[in-house]
Design a protein around this nucleic acid. Structure first.
Lengths: 334, 334
DNA sequence: CTGAAAGCGCTTACAG
DNA sequence: CTGAAAGCGCTTACAG
């Protein structure tokens, strides 16, 4: 039988209050007593029962994470890195990570998971919602329930959010093209209406504008974010228009695009300069290796976790946006 | 203030025992009472306090997962898929997933995490240990602590384990080469001594043997599992020996190898037929698309979770190996 | 410097 | 068919 605090107290000849206080370092205990208690704890291989602790202290010391990842979708990788960032900083602060992911793309499913968590299981929630409008949260959680949003800017509910600077990244990509003399620059992007895609488009536009290049909407292809759509978008864009540079605004699309360009044996960057999105390993494998805009995914996770812990321990007031810079990783395709 | 079972009981005019029993469906309650209770629960937006539940029932309904993933390592993807498989089946059974990952490759770190979990936080542990020999577990956990190992065959501790059939996969790859007429078949593999690498080598050997091809150890390169080593191994193997086919026994090495082959503008499969390991998205992006041995990662996770739940709920006795078949995904490189 | 005791919110024998 | 009550293992005022 596993020993509890009572056994430790008895064997050490002190009260359970004292044992508790040496464990939590929560009031003065004489050095002598401390040593005795620690010794007995080791001897009995005592581990505090976390359920009892949570129940009594109203604190679970665990954070929930909900991310939308479809099985075998490449975008997994992004959230995986985010999760790692979260985990590593939570661990440093003595928190645990409870993971849930949305394999359906249903908002109902998301709600269900939040409710499941909302039973004193977690002290706070980090979520990459599939919805932009998260006002449904108002009905589900208390107003002081700590929530940190990641990847997208939420609307309809107040909370901190941390995301990559897609606007800046996109701007930098296009600006780089322009500096190299390109003026007809294509853009292939995922569906608009979500903040990530929107701001990448804005960055593209702004870079053109700042350099006196007129915006030509026919050089833009908006498509679903999957391999095939990327492939098809590249195909139709290149057959309909002559462009000398192409910016692809997300990673799955980048794969599809590259497949097409390789099939067509397009000379990169001479015939077409290319910048992709996300610095995945495979981008080093194309010929030439791909220049990309890197999102600081691990760092997003770290930041989100830090914010979360601050919220819980400090009870701050106003919510903020945390926008982490992307970086241009120069390789051979541009 | 959040309402508890007491408030529900009062408002419904029943005892808390009855409320508990309707929640858990654990003894007969009249239909009428049930309806009343459910109604009040909805009205008060009641959610059972999971800490109280765990404390009382000695069951947390959560499973811990420890995986070794280094930041930005491609092998992440494998464990990510495993984790998804685990998560999706746990969810179906009403369990939660507590995730921890080892970013150092230190066994001490792993122990630390296990101890952290071993405080009634979890009902069972699924682990991809960095060590082959997990006898250290004997000192840390009780003998009836449910543990399911994944990816590698553990030694020094009894437990179920589920892994991909690397032996069979390797055999199939080499056999496929042979059927196509190849006789000089190279192998590039990660460091031996761990069961995954070992059995892939064994599969290679057996396939040769079954087809009367003498084993030539000079056609084998053992190297560290990283991009550069893959690159270098391919380089030296191809410069020292003439081979017509090459099997690369893990995914990171496959990337490095492909990079080299592309740089050298090797004609695949005519000059060299290639089969890689793991069906990652990028394998469709090489020229030609890569034929690979696919590991059923998601399925490994599902299986591990199922086994775990059975262990917890049934208390079975003897431990088993679960070996899931790999599949050859035929594409253009062979 | 330390202890006795209440109580966190449930589940579950026991009893009728 | 249902209730009263013990108790899971802690933390934390209260008291001295």
């Amino acid at each position: 039988m596993r020993s509890g605090i009572k056994q430790v107290a008895e064997k050490a000849g002190v009260s359970i209050a004292t044992v508790s206080h040496v464990i939590n370092n929560t009031r003065f205990v004489s050095e002598e007593t401390k040593i005795k208690v620690f010794h007995v704890m080791k001897e009995l291989d005592y581990r505090p029962n976390s359920a009892a602790r949570s129940l009594r202290s109203q604190k679970s010391n665990t954070i929930g994470l909900i991310v939308p990842v479809l099985p075998s979708d490449t975008s997994n990788f992004f959230f995986m890195m985010v999760a790692q960032g979260i985990q590593s900083t939570l661990k440093r602060h003595g928190y645990h990570l409870l993971l849930s992911n949305n394999t359906t793309e249903e908002i109902e499913d998301e709600k269900e998971q939040i409710k499941l968590f909302n039973s004193k299981l977690i002290d706070g929630l980090i979520i990459a919602s599939i919805a932009e409008d998260v006002s449904y949260l108002n009905d589900i959680v208390a107003s002081d329930y700590p929530i940190v949003f990641i990847d997208r800017k939420p609307s309809g509910f107040s909370g901190d959010y941390v995301l990559a600077d897609g606007y800046g990244g996109s701007y930098e990509a296009v600006h780089t093209f322009i500096e190299k003399g390109h003026r007809r620059i294509g853009l292939i992007t995922g569906g608009l209406g979500i903040s990530t895609s929107n701001e990448r488009l804005e960055g593209y536009k702004k870079a053109l504008q700042d350099n006196g290049i007129p915006f030509d909407s026919s050089l833009i292809k908006v498509s679903e974010s999957n391999f095939e759509s990327g492939y098809e978008s590249a195909k139709s864009l290149l057959s309909e228009h002559s462009i000398s540079a192409l910016f692809v605004a997300n990673n799955v699309l980048t794969m599809g695009v590259m497949r097409y360009l390789q099939e067509r044996q397009m000379k990169i960057p001479d015939e077409l300069a290319v910048i992709g999105f996300d610095d995945y390993d495979w981008t080093q494998l194309t010929t030439p290796p791909l220049t990309v805009i890197r999102q600081p995914s691990f760092e997003i996770g770290e930041k989100a976790a830090e914010i979360m812990i601050n919220r819980i321990e400090k009870t701050d007031t106003n919510y903020k946006e945390y926008r982490l810079p992307t970086t241009l990783v120069m390789r051979g395709s541009c």
